[in-house]
């Protein structure tokens, strides 16, 4: 078990290192001179020099990379060129909208998908199964941001149950904050819940056709007992993979959905930074998101080992 965790830790560090290198190369090296790019064509020579100095562009590529990574390790993401404030501060504020939104949506989709998938699988071929599969077929096909717009139209504009956008702020209390995130989270969760329901159902059906299920039935277990005691945990293994992959889609989705609800999260920040050519902010936000995805997948790897003794190795 310890060996497995160590192996995953090593691979986590390597992933983070390679990902940071890719981001660094894409944003700071590929464009040639980032300072010239950020200032545009009519830049004054001395402004350019000042910016280059501020960005530390005078060192070698290797020095710049190590100082960037070294800075991030102590929480220094550099200073935004357009806002003239530390990037860490800007991200710090906004991350507490995007990350909770993604987590909220992940929770919702899991809470919906598990019972739905189990229910459909245990009634395979029935009207209930067909109904669930039909709904998920629609859910997979619907663009989440469009669904969000429709929900704004119905629940905010026509029914007035929610505000059409904006964020109450966590200082208004946890519930008020959650309420502002509820419509966005539902919009994000629906397609993911549909995918997860389908995966859950098919994984469970696959497991139910395994030999050991028949062995368990021969012991005298009822269909229901076999499902709960033997099939479900085994079926979780592929489902975990999908949950891990979904988190990165949810984060990306969260950034898009923020636009629909005018939420001041990382999405707004990064799109503004793109139009302002503020590469420092873009780089930091992308790194933060990739970091979150890699960490979640590390957690999923650990969850595998908890479910599947074969990964823990022989004793």
């Amino acid at each position: 078990m310890l060996r497995y965790v160590l192996k995953r830790l090593v691979s986590l560090v390597i992933s983070l290192a390679v990902a940071s290198l890719v981001i660094f190369l894409a944003i700071e090296v590929v464009p040639g001179d980032p300072a010239a790019y950020m200032l545009g064509m009519n830049a004054q020579a001395d402004t350019l020099a000042a910016l280059r100095d501020q960005l530390g562009l005078n060192g070698s590529v290797f020095e710049r990379y190590t100082s960037w990574v070294g800075g991030m390790l102590v929480g220094d993401f550099g200073t935004s060129y357009t806002y003239r404030t530390p990037v860490a501060e800007m991200i710090g504020d906004r991350m507490w909208i995007s990350l909770p939104l993604a987590a909220y949506a992940l929770t919702l989709s899991t809470v919906i998908a598990f019972p739905a998938g189990v229910w459909a699988a245990s009634r395979r071929g029935s009207a209930a199964d067909m109904g669930v599969m039909g709904v998920t077929q629609l859910g997979v096909a619907i663009p989440n941001f469009w669904f969000a717009m429709l929900m704004v139209l119905v629940f905010a504009i026509n029914l007035g149950w929610f505000s059409a956008g904006g964020f109450a702020g966590w200082e208004q209390g946890f519930l008020a904050g959650m309420k502002s995130l509820t419509l966005p989270a539902i919009a994000l969760a629906l397609p993911q819940a549909s995918i997860l329901t389908r995966v859950m159902r098919s994984s469970l059906l696959d497991t139910l056709s395994e030999d050991f299920i028949r062995t368990a039935r021969a012991k005298g277990l009822t269909r229901r007992q076999v499902l709960w005691r033997h099939a479900l945990r085994n079926a979780m293994i592929p489902v975990l993979t999908i949950i891990g992959m979904q988190f990165s889609f949810l984060l990306a989705g969260a950034i898009i959905i923020e636009n629909v609800f005018f939420l001041p999260g990382l999405g707004r920040l990064v799109f503004q930074a793109i139009s302002a050519r503020d590469l420092i902010v873009v780089e930091s936000v992308v790194m933060l998101l990739v970091f979150a995805v890699i960490m979640v997948n590390f957690a999923v790897d650990l969850a595998y080992a908890a479910v599947d003794p074969r990964l823990r190795g022989r004793r």
Binding site: A26, I27, S248, I256, V270, V293, N297
Partner: peptide
């Protein structure tokens, strides 16, 4: 897999 198309698009 850690870079959804959105992040790649943002960088490009």
């Amino acid at each position: 897999f850690a870079f959804p198309s959105l992040l790649i698009a943002i960088m490009i």
